[in-house]
Structures are given as C-alpha cells and as structure tokens.
C-alpha cells in the first residue's frame, strides 16, 4: 500500500508530508512549491508505508507540467490510498478534485486543512454530514500547528473506495430529509 498526498497548490501538502514523514521538503507560502513528486516513509500501525507528495493540481485534466506529473502519479499507483488535502475555506473548489479521485475508484481520506483560517473567516463546515454524504473519512486539520493529525492517520486504514452513485444518492437523500424535517445543519464540528 502507498499513500498519495493530493490537493490544490498551496493547501499545505508539503507541510503534511514533513509532519508525517519527518522528511525535509520545502514549505513555502505560495502555490507551486512542489513541482516534482517527493517520496518518504511513514509509520502506520507498526508498518512502514510509502508516502508520496504529489505536486498541486486543480483537477485531473492537466493544464501544466505539475498537473501532468500529478495525473501520472495517480495512474501509476493504483493500489494507493489518497489523502486529499482541501483548503477548508474553499471547500467547493477542493471537492472537485476529491470527487474526481473518488470517481476513479481510489480509497480517499479528506483532510480539511487550514481549519484555523476557515474559522477566522467565520466559515462553518458540518464535518459529520460531509462524511455521511461522501462516505469517506473527513478530518479537520491545521497542518502548521499539527492539529488533527492523529485522527487523520487513524482514518487512513478505514478508507475504502465508494461509488459515486452512492454519493449522489446520499446527497439528495440528506437534502430531502433536511427540507422535510428541517433538522440537519445546525451543529458544526470542531477540531478534535
């Protein structure tokens, strides 16, 4: 098994990589720091697992060299779990890539990174509900300070491929229930 770190440019994938592997990868606060992939090893429940820091990509229809590398890495590593790192303050944009990866049948864990910035911006995300709709683990993280990492690592083994039809169904089911009973919504999750 391998783990691929994927996500938009500058959502903190390299910070994840450094935290998880203890390796030395550049972290810079501008998009496109990692233009080539980086490999490292992390401990997962007593096993050494290979972790690959994939260059930032907005979608799997490549538009630049870095995205080409990303698509190639994904295709070459069919047996991987993908940790899809999203910017919590721009969930919609990040979900596009996450859905594309889910549609291709990869097991996915979604990390809602930059959770602190989302909080600053007063954006509330219902993590539990998002998890229920997507059918994959969703974990809020703040990579720079290390919050949420324990939970993220523990969820990697739980990740399993889900059918996109199931996601569509649960999205509309939850939506129907919400409009009927007006119960869902309200509660918002905090970083554990």
């Amino acid at each position: 098994m391998k783990i691929l770190l994927m996500g938009h440019p500058n959502v903190g994938k390299s910070v994840f990589f450094n935290r998880l592997t203890g390796a030395k990868v550049f972290e810079s606060n501008y998009p496109g720091t990692t233009v080539d992939f980086m490999k490292g090893w992390m401990r997962l429940e007593g096993e050494d697992v290979e972790l690959i820091d994939v260059p930032g990509a907005f979608s799997l229809e490549p538009k630049d060299r870095a995205e080409e590398v990303a698509v190639k890495m994904l295709a070459e590593n069919r047996d991987s779990v993908v940790v899809c790192v999203l910017d919590a303050s721009k969930v919609e944009r990040g979900l596009y890539l996450a859905l594309e990866i889910i549609e291709r049948g990869y097991p996915v864990v979604v990390a809602l990174n930059m959770w602190d910035i989302a909080e600053d911006k007063n954006i509330r995300i219902d993590v539990e509900k998002l998890e229920r709709i997507l059918g994959v683990p969703v974990v809020p993280t703040t990579a720079i300070s290390g919050e949420g990492f324990k939970e993220l690592v523990s969820k990697i083994k739980e990740a399993a491929p889900v059918k996109i039809e199931g996601v569509i169904e649960s999205a509309s089911a939850v939506s129907a229930a919400a409009s009927a009973g007006k119960e869902g919504g309200g509660e918002s999750a905090a970083v554990s």
């Binding site: 859905l99 993590v127 996601v167 999205a171 509309s172």
Partner: peptide
C-alpha cells in the same frame, strides 16, 4: 469517469449547500 464536469459541479453545489455555512 462517470460524471461530466457539469454533473460534478451540480453535485458539489448540492453537497456544500448542506454542509458549509458562511458566517
């Protein structure tokens, strides 16, 4: 891939409408 670009954005809109709240 099962979804077209538009279908995917529709799904995202549906999901985020229910889970994301902008204060």
């Amino acid at each position: 891939v099962p979804l077209s670009v538009d279908e995917r954005w529709d799904l995202i809109e549906n999901i985020s409408k229910q889970t994301v709240e902008f204060g």
